[in-house]
């Protein structure tokens, strides 16, 4: 082996060791724990698929959390991607003070989730919050909502904050993607008589697949592991109306001391992420081959 390869391996070794230990070994330990009935202060025994059978057949709270996670993911991704693309196209169309708008879109992303939560809780207060106060002030009091104090709107309220916080990131990624499209192709289309709308729809957007993959995977990752916003804004309530897998896993593990069951919820979360990302990667690969 050449000296250069040895040097490369030496420098890679610490990172490989750290990832192996702190990711894969601990992951294996969690998976093993998920097949036991480990509780705090007690000896664990092997129960096989007991935890998994329980969660899908008799734990209504888990099923609600799973459904809420999927709903949150669908709303978050379903609105963040189109909104980010729309804002990126607006920036590309040459709006004045482009730099200022770029900065404004990115500012929410710089907030910590805790800071955002505290701010938005005050905004969402039904009686004295900013949103309902403004609506009443402009004569739209019929649109004032209970927001996070209602079981039917608590999850949507969390999703709105997530979209507010991440749409700037999606805008930036798409804008970078749009900027990298060969201007000669767009110019040629213009010469052939294509309208602005047709240029974006038929030329620019199809070339934004890598940007879409980036935004999709990152938003998917954040939505599946959503904890901070839910914990700080609603605590998963009222009832279990905004409970997601991450917050439910925390409560089961640390408040109820069921470490084995909590680990199984974590494994379900992992499998969910792997399945969705893998499916999308396969779809993208097929698209490239075509």
């Amino acid at each position: 082996m050449s000296k250069r390869k040895i040097g490369t391996l030496v420098f890679l070794a610490p990172a490989v060791v750290l990832v192996t230990v702190f990711v894969y070994m601990f992951l294996a330990q969690s998976i093993h724990m998920s097949f036991t009935n480990l509780r705090f202060g007690r000896v664990a025994t092997w129960i096989g698929l007991g935890n998994y059978i329980r969660m899908f057949t008799r734990d209504a709270a888990f099923q609600t959390s799973l459904l809420n996670t999927l709903k949150l993911t669908a709303v978050f991704i379903g609105l963040t991607i189109p909104l980010g693309l729309f804002l990126a196209i607006l920036l590309d169309l040459g709006v004045k003070a482009k730099g200022l708008f770029r900065t404004i879109f990115l500012i929410p992303l710089s907030f910590s989730f805790v800071a955002s939560s505290v701010m938005w809780v005050w905004a969402f207060l039904p009686e004295t919050g900013t949103i309902n106060t403004i609506l009443r002030a402009i004569g739209l009091s019929s649109l004032a909502q209970p927001w996070i104090s209602s079981g039917s709107q608590s999850l949507l309220s969390v999703a709105l904050v997530y979209i507010w916080q991440f749409s700037g990131f999606a805008t930036l990624v798409y804008y970078t993607g749009i900027s990298s499209v060969d201007p000669a192709i767009i110019e040629a289309a213009g010469i052939d008589g294509a309208s602005t709308w047709r240029k974006y729809w038929h030329i620019v957007i199809p070339q934004l697949k890598p940007a879409t993959v980036t935004v999709l995977i990152l938003t998917l990752m954040y939505s599946l592991k959503c904890f901070d916003l839910v914990w700080m804004m609603t605590g998963g309530g009222p009832g279990y109306s905004s409970e997601v897998l991450a917050t439910f896993m925390y409560k089961v593990t640390f408040s109820q001391s069921k470490f084995g069951y909590g680990a199984s919820i974590g494994v379900v979360l992992l499998l969910l992420s792997v399945v969705v990302v893998a499916a999308f990667m396969i779809y993208m690969k097929r698209g490239e081959r075509d």
């Binding site: 709270a61 209602s150 079981g151 998963g236 309530g237 009222p238 009832g239 279990y240 109306s241 409560k251 408040s255 109820q256």
Partner: peptide
């Protein structure tokens, strides 16, 4: 107790 029971009461409040 303070994880399981309050969740039921919180839902009842709705």
């Amino acid at each position: 107790y303070l994880s399981l029971m309050p969740a039921a009461l919180s839902a009842f409040g709705e």
